[in-house]
Computed example of a mutant assay.
Amino acid sequence: MTTALITGATAGIGAAFARRLAADGHDLVLVARDAERLRDQATELHDRHGVEAEVLRADLATDEGIEAVAARLGNRRRPVDLLVNNAGFGNRGRYLEVPLADELTMLKVHCEAVLRLTSAGTEAMRERGRGGVVNVASVAAFLPRGTYGASKAWVVQFTQGVARDLAGSGVRLMALCPGFVRTEFHERAGMGTDNIPGWMWLDADKVVATGLTDLSRGRTVSVPDPRYKALMGLAKLAPRQLLGGVTSTTGRKYGPQ
């Protein structure tokens, strides 16, 4: 039986990945900061689907947390076949309104942790000649939206570059780039959502289903909805200021995890 490790596993897209992969018969390693919530989730998935669900409490804003997850990914006796780098957060406010420490923490979680965990996971996967990595980014990667968008643009470029370098190794990599997803993310970040049109909201389970299909097809970037694919097509033609303004009404986050 294969094993998937998911960061940010207790909510939003991470929880949707856990549900889908457990339903498909994969054992799980669930990573998040809230130990009690992790244990409850692991018990529910085990009881419902009969899979093993390991709990790993880790804060990816710290070196210790990243090292703990990297060590689990590098464990050759208990290999991880699929890594889902989903952990992330948003900051409310424009540039210079957000404390610099919070911006640096975002880069730690969105960039450094993704780099180090992808490296640990793919090294072990390449040795076995198989495996997959999904790095959850956002359509914000294609829009001019400050540190959040810049960090997600890095995730997309990094993922595509590694996928090219590991071509032929049996290891697949993909950046998943959703738009607004119905999760608890905006509430936790203190962002309002009343002014976001209903058509822009996506369902987390559908995002995951499309993402896994795209991964199996060998795609390195997945924008999991026709509406957002069309919007990103328009982004190439429309003034960047126009599309950038779409995200300003909800702070710094576009496409929550």
Rank of each mutant, 00 (worst) to 15 (best):
T193W: 04
L82F: 05
A101Q: 14
A167F: 11
R78S: 07
L38D: 01
R172G: 01
R94V: 09
R76P: 13
G131F: 08
V80E: 10
G131Y: 07
W201E: 00
M125Q: 07
K206Q: 15
V69P: 09
L166F: 12
A70W: 09
L234C: 15
M106C: 00
L104H: 08
R126I: 07
A238H: 04
D47N: 13
L60G: 01
K108M: 07
M232Q: 05
Q157R: 15
G12D: 03
D24A: 08
T10G: 02
L107S: 01
I13K: 04
E36P: 06
G211K: 13
N135R: 05
V136D: 08
L173D: 00
A35P: 02
G132I: 04
K152N: 02
G192P: 03
G132S: 10
D225F: 03
A68C: 05
S138M: 11
F89T: 00
I13Y: 05
R128F: 09
A61K: 07
L215V: 11
Q257E: 15
L202A: 01
C177F: 00
Q157K: 10
W201C: 00
K253F: 12
G245M: 08
W154E: 04
V156W: 05
R116E: 10
A42T: 03
G170Q: 01
G25F: 11
G218V: 07
G131I: 02
F185P: 03
H49Y: 15
G244L: 06
V221T: 06
F17P: 01
L176P: 02
Q160I: 01
P256D: 15
L237Y: 05
V80F: 03
M106A: 02
E52K: 13
S216W: 02
T122G: 05
E64R: 09
L30R: 11
H186D: 14
G146A: 12
Q41Y: 04
I66G: 05
E123A: 07
G211W: 10
G168I: 07
A42K: 06
L73Y: 04
I66K: 03
R164M: 06
N195Q: 15
D27A: 14
R188E: 15
R92M: 13
A18R: 00
L107N: 04
A4Y: 14
L115W: 12
V133S: 00
E44Q: 14
T213E: 14
A53S: 12
E52A: 15
A70M: 08
T250R: 13
L242M: 08
W154G: 02
T118A: 12
G146Y: 14
A140T: 09
H26K: 03
